[in-house]
Amino acid sequence: MGTRWTVLLIILSLVSLVPLTAACRRGEATASVHVEVVAIDPSPPTVGPATVRFRLQDSTEGKPVVGLGTVEVEGTMSHAGMEPVITTAREEEDGVYVTEGFTFTMGGDWILIVRGTWNGQRFEARAEIPNVRSSAATPVHQHGTVRP
């Protein structure tokens, strides 16, 4: 019986150790470029066609990422299985890009994923667009709390 309990303890210990090694993750946004949403029209963001302006910056020095022309933009949601909105954004001014034909198809929390090539390397950067409203009457909601 003692051996069995030892086996049980070893198995459970190994199982509990596995998640602790989860620091290294695959498929995370690359660190070279940082994206920051500058403005969304309409504001606050509501379901329907929208224009999103965002700034791309060098993650290390904070310099604007310029001269890319157009970048790929994907709008997706926090829930899996939703059809993402895939479009492009053109450079408007130094480091600021504006989406073309972007639409919020559903209310809720959106994630903007920007992909492109800079300095000869592919990059992917992400920004949050929380609380896209189904209609103007929908209240603001922060995860974990409800604000009257």
């Binding site: 994630i111 609380n131 909601h141």
Partner: peptide
């Protein structure tokens, strides 16, 4: 209308 709000990133 569906509205998905959850833990972002």
């Amino acid at each position: 209308p569906m509205e998905m709000r959850g833990t972002l990133l």
